[in-house]
Structures are given as C-alpha cells and as structure tokens.
C-alpha cells in the first residue's frame, strides 16, 4: 500500500565543512509531481542531486541519515550508484545534449547500460514521442543535436532520460533557460509524464509550481520549512515564512 517511492529520514548534507541541508525528513509520492521551491542557495539542487547520487561527483561531500528508494537505502555501502541513476533520471537546468546526432543522443544510454533493446529504432521513436519532439525531428534524426533550438534540446534531454525507462525523473529548473512557448510545451509534457513517472522538479517560478505540481516543498537555508499539498501551500500555507515567500514579501 506504500505509495511513497522515495523516503528521506533525518538527512544532513555537507559540502566539506559547510552544511547545505539540515535534518530533512520527507516522502515523495509515486506518480506525483512534487515541486521544490525556495530562495537561491537554500539547497534545492543539492537535495535533488542527493536522490540520484550525483553529489558523489563532488569532492569532500558527506551524507547523514537515510534515503530510501523503493525501500532500499541508496547510500548503503553495497549499493552501486550507477544502478540508482538508471532508475532515477535527471534533466538539468541548461539543456546539455551530447555533441552527437539526435538518434545517438537517445540510444546512448540504453546501448551502454546493456539493456537488451529488441528494436532501438522504436525505442528512439517512443522516447521522442513521449517528449513531444518526434514530429519536429523525425526527418533529421541523423543531424547533430547541437543544431536544435534550446527548447528542442531540453525536450531531447527529457527524451534521452526517458529512454532509460526510469521510475523517477528529477528536473532542476528545466525551463529557466527557455522561452515562454518552450516552457509551456514542457509543462504540458510534465502533465503527460506524470501518468507513468514520479517527477520531482525544482523551480523558481511560483506559477509553474502551482500549475504543474501536486505537492510543494518550501526550503529555506537548508531546512524544509513546509511540505504540503500545492493547493494548500499557495492558498493557505501553515507557516508564515512560506506565505511571505510565495507572495514575494520575502526579505
């Protein structure tokens, strides 16, 4: 009956000596969209990168507490971070396609992770369709991905992540580098994806959080201030700080 796919229990995180997250306990619901909001530097990206162990790449970091993904502690010594990252995909703030063809951008992950794909062509198509990019690129699959527009590149990156068939999709301000039209397209896409995926998204855009998410978590200075239904957060938050932030009276 447990519908929480990721659970954090008393998580502390440090970059060297400086603590970036303090005593975070929260659960992420399966097939839900959770938005992480808060002022710059409050630790949203840090939290997101904890969930697929991307923070491992940074020297001198330390994690305390428990982070359970599907019931397993992903920081346990016998866990291979590579394994976790296959199940927990990520989309970055700036579109970062590989300097390869569109097709090879998508097939890159499945090919290298040894998933046996019966039909790579249809996986590529399926992923691009899911990311609502297929119609735009179906005739130029062998062109370099670097020639696409920013919004197209970002959807390509989403398709690339989807091709791995992850359970969770982490998105760190995926639209902050995009124009309004591309942003709208990606928001629609998120709405669509939520049927099959658990999505955790960092955003600085309050309307965006309100539009697309089911739950919202507000962070401040490395602390989880309030975590509630999005509706509630944006209409009648429990904590005064949250209200100040949302209404722009923060300071």
């Amino acid at each position: 009956m447990d519908s929480h796919i990721i659970k954090l229990h008393k998580v502390n995180f440090y970059y060297g000596q400086t603590q970036a997250l303090t005593d975070i306990s929260m659960n992420f619901g399966q097939n839900r969209v959770t938005a992480l909001i808060g002022p710059s530097g409050c630790g949203k990206s840090t939290l997101l990168r904890l969930l697929n162990r991307m923070n491992d790449l940074i020297d001198g970091t330390k994690v305390e507490g428990e982070i359970l993904f599907e019931g397993r502690n992903i920081y346990a010594p016998n866990i291979d971070p590579v394994e976790i990252r296959r199940k927990v995909g990520m989309v970055f703030q700036k579109p970062n396609p590989f300097p390869k063809t569109i097709y090879n951008n998508i097939s890159y992950g499945p090919k290298l992770t040894g998933v046996t794909v019966a039909d790579m062509d249809s996986l590529v198509e399926q992923s691009l369709r899911q990311a609502v990019l297929w119609d735009e690129v179906k005739d130029i699959l062998n062109k370099s991905a670097m020639n696409l527009s920013g919004g197209q590149q970002q959807r390509l990156c989403i398709a690339r992540a989807l091709a791995m068939k992850p359970d969770v999709l982490l998105m760190d301000e995926p639209t902050s580098a995009l124009d309004p039209i591309s942003t709208a397209k990606i928001e629609e896409l998120i709405e669509e994806l939520k049927k099959d995926y658990t999505i955790i998204i960092v955003t600085h855009n309050m309307q965006q959080a309100a539009r697309i998410s089911d739950e919202t978590a507000f962070f401040y200075l490395g602390n989880l201030v309030e975590y509630n239904k999005t509706e509630k957060i944006f209409t009648n938050p429990d904590v005064k700080q949250t209200e100040d932030y949302i209404t722009g009276r923060f300071g």
Binding site: E83, R85, F92, Y108
Partner: peptide
C-alpha cells in the same frame, strides 16, 4: 555537463 548527463543516465 557532458559528464553529468552521461552519468545521470546510469552510464
């Protein structure tokens, strides 16, 4: 970012 993108795919 290239490295991050690749690693984040579980490569």
């Amino acid at each position: 970012t290239f490295r991050e993108a690749s690693l984040s795919l579980g490569v």
